[in-house]
Design a protein around this nucleic acid. Structure first.
Lengths: 145, 145
DNA sequence: CTAACATCTATAGTTGCTGTAGATGCAAGC
DNA sequence: GCTTGCATCTACAGCAACTATAGATGTTAG
C-alpha cells in the first residue's frame, strides 16, 4: 500500500487530479492510514492509468465513466464500448478536418503577410474580410441556434 | 442603431456572449437607450465578427485581444500579427498530428472489436494495455511536471 | 391594453482540472 | 526527543470561454 504521491508518480497524474477523480466518483474512496492519508494498491494504479490513457485519447470523463462501467461487467457484449469508440473516432475525424481547413487559411494569411504595415496586413485583413463573409451569411433572416 | 439581439443575429454570436465580451473588455460599453438597452452600430458588427472569426480559427481570446490592439494601430509593422498567426499555425499543426495518431489508435481498437464479450474486447483491452505502457514509463524514478 | 417576446442584472453552472492556504502527518538527522 | 522539511489533508478559489437561469423590466403587435 502506498500514498497518493506515489500513485501520482506512477501514473503521471497530479495529486489533485486523483483527489478530483475520487470526488466525482471515478475512483472509489480508498482506505486511510492512521494519520488519515489515502492508501492505494496496484488495482488503483491500473484503474487510474486506464483513465489517463483514455483521457489522452480524447475521451470525455463521461465516456471514461461508461468505459469503466463496461469493463466492470466483462460478461456482457462489448457493443457499447464499440459505439463509444466509434463516436470518439468520428469526433476526432471531424476535428482533424476542421483543423486542416484552419491550417490552410492560416497559411494563406501568413504567406500574404510580407512584413508591411498593419494597414496592408493580410492577417488582419483576412480576419476582417471574413467578417464580410460572416455578415453576408448571418443576416437577420438567418436562424442560428 | 440596433439592440443586442440584432447584433447577435447578424454575427452569429449569442447575446450572453456579447455581454461577456463587453465584461472582459473586448467590446467597449455601448450607449444605452432610454430603457437602458444597449445600442450598437455597424462598427460593432465588424469588431464582433472579427472576434468570432478569429475564435473560429482557434485563436484564444488573449490572441484576439492582441490582434485587435494591432489592428487599432494600422501604421505599425505587422510583424506582431505575423508572429501570432505563425504561433497559431504551429499549434494547429501540432493538434492535427496528435489527433491523427489518436485516429489511428482508435481505428485499430475498433477494427479488433468483433462484437464479442467485454472480457475479450479490444477497446477496453487497448486502453488497459496502454496502462502497462504507462506504468512502465512512469516509474517512481521518473519526474513528471 | 394586454400578451408575448426581448433585454436587463446578477449569479451559478459547465468541463477538467490546477493552484492556494493553513493545518497536520511523517521520516531523517542531530 | 526534537527540529526540519517535505507530503498530505481539507476546503475553497480560479482558469477558459462561454452558457444558462431567475426575476425584473422594456418594447412591440394585435
Amino acid at each position: 500500500m502506498f500514498t497518493i504521491g506515489r500513485l501520482a508518480r506512477r501514473t503521471g497524474a497530479k495529486v489533485q487530479t486523483i483527489r478530483y477523480y475520487e470526488e466525482i466518483g471515478l475512483l472509489s474512496k480508498p482506505p486511510r492510514s492512521e494519520g488519515n492519508q489515502r492508501l492505494y494498491g496496484e488495482q488503483e494504479v491500473d484503474r487510474l492509468a486506464f483513465i489517463r490513457h483514455a483521457r489522452e485519447l480524447g475521451f470525455s470523463l463521461a465516456a471514461v465513466r461508461d468505459l469503466l462501467s463496461l469493463s466492470d461487467s466483462p460478461g456482457q457484449s462489448c457493443e457499447a464500448a464499440d459505439v463509444i469508440a466509434r463516436c470518439q473516432l468520428e469526433a476526432v475525424e471531424a476535428r482533424i478536418a476542421r483543423l486542416q481547413s484552419l491550417k490552410r487559411e492560416l497559411e494563406r494569411m501568413i504567406e500574404q503577410c510580407q512584413g508591411g504595415k498593419i494597414a496592408d496586413c493580410r492577417v488582419i485583413e483576412v480576419l476582417s474580410d471574413h467578417n464580410q463573409c460572416l455578415t453576408e451569411n448571418h443576416t437577420d433572416a438567418a436562424v442560428h441556434s
